[in-house]
Amino acid sequence: MFELSKEGVEFVKKEMQRYETKRSAIIPALYKVQEENGGWVSPECVTYLSQLMDLPEVWINEVLNFYTMFNKEPVGKYHVQVCCNVSCAMNGGRELADHLCKELNIKDGRHSEDGRYTLSRVECLGSCGTAPMMQVNDKYYENLTKESAVQILKELP
């Protein structure tokens, strides 16, 4: 059974105070849950959050399903998000993603075999000037080439 840490609960409570309706605090609360649940939000997390925030489960599930920033299934140790939107695509973002899949042994286009990496192709991450780029967990890596990207990922602890 998932539970937020003490700071997590405090954070959610504070966010609930911050908006006119507590429904507005669902997004920050879900971020917190995702952070503490190892990168994804499970159905149990939704149930837990609905009890904590005293909101219906469907409301939380609606938000969770709407946004792609929330992961609905477990992710690897490193969640690699490769931008494939206009600027990055023009500079080889899509090819970069294909290359990473090959190099990191990602067969189904999502998880590497050893579970270390999960790769998603995402829309604009707001770093067009430094395309192509990727985000690994919370960190941006910019001005990538195929080689440098693979090197960065392999060198991660």
Partner: peptide, 19 residues
């Protein structure tokens, strides 16, 4: 009773109950 909701978005939106 808040059972039903609209999940997902765009042309993939669909109604459903949680789980």
């Amino acid at each position: 009773t808040y059972e039903l909701g609209i999940f997902n978005r765009g042309d993939r939106s669909e109604i459903g109950t949680f789980e």
